[in-house]
Simulated scan of single mutants.
Amino acid sequence: MLLQKLKIVLIPSNASEVKRYAIPHIIWVTTVLFLLASVVLLGWLIWQFKHKIVDSQQIATLTKENAILEQKTDEFGKQMASLTTTMNEYQNYTERIRRISDILSAYGADSLRIPPVDLPDENLLIDRLDDLLATTQQQKIRLQEIINSLENYPEIWDHTPSIRPTTGISVGPGFEEIRDPFTGKLRMHEGLDISAPTGTPIVATADGEVTFVGQLERYGWVVELDHRHGYETAYGHCSVVRVKEGEKVKRGQVIALVGNSGRSIGPHLHYEVRVNGEKVDPMKYILD
């Protein structure tokens, strides 16, 4: 059947000559197949177009959601950074309050009428950042109240070691048992070592009087101060001494320069605090 020709007969309405056309089978078969292929192709294109529209909408939605997520992540990161800073600040203030309270206990804190310090449990995580910020601010206020109370007793405050004796970084060892790098034997390191370049100023940590300037085998050039009320401080490994015995000094006054004298493996300050003749941890008397 498909191998036969397709015949088309045209009969005019005016009864004129009838026209007959014979179309070879290859042509009309090809035409039919072409039309079918066109319909299939058109359907496929329509299907693809619809899916592309859906995909584009999904991509636009995902892009928007991703932008919102990135914004929230960025905000969360900033909040966490702020939270970390605030927590460090909070811990610093509570530590400073504790150190000042330790100093006050030597004089009878009750007689100074210090406002009570109600510290929260540091192991509890504060849920809201605003609450943490408010708590830190309260600690700042209470710390300032304690400092203000001390300032009402200048005889105590001015003669109590309370600042860093030099700039630089605290390096090991601290106030602890160590193995002596020169003898290899265990001994108590009764002070604080602060590493700093040679020539860095060393200041008095409280008002007092110079009671000793000289060289010692272990600590090289040393300056010792008597601050009264049982407080004494010592500054070792100096390169230059700027005061003399019997001289009165004020807190923050330069008394010497950092050096490497004595038994030392590098320029640093060896700082000691003594209370009633007993050497104590100097970190308890650094409040700045």
Rank of each mutant, 00 (worst) to 15 (best):
L6D: 03
P12E: 14
S13T: 07
V18T: 12
R20V: 15
R20C: 14
V29C: 07
V32M: 12
F34L: 15
F34W: 15
V40A: 04
L41M: 15
L42R: 09
I46F: 13
Q48R: 14
K52R: 08
I59L: 14
L62V: 12
I68H: 02
T73F: 06
Q79D: 05
E89D: 06
N92G: 09
Y93D: 04
T94W: 12
T94M: 15
R98E: 00
D110A: 11
L119K: 04
E122A: 03
D130V: 06
D131V: 02
T136M: 04
I141Y: 01
E145Q: 14
N148Q: 15
S149Y: 08
H159W: 04
S162V: 01
I163Q: 04
G168D: 01
S170R: 02
F175H: 00
P181I: 06
G184T: 10
P201E: 00
I202P: 03
D207C: 10
G214C: 05
Q215A: 09
E217Y: 01
H227V: 05
H229A: 00
H229E: 00
G230T: 04
E232A: 01
T233I: 13
H237Y: 01
S239R: 12
R242S: 07
V243I: 03
V243C: 04
K244F: 09
V249D: 15
V249R: 05
K250Q: 07
K250C: 05
A256T: 03
G266W: 15
L269W: 11
Y271N: 15
E272G: 05
R274H: 14
R274S: 12
N276V: 06
K279W: 05
D281Y: 12
D288L: 11
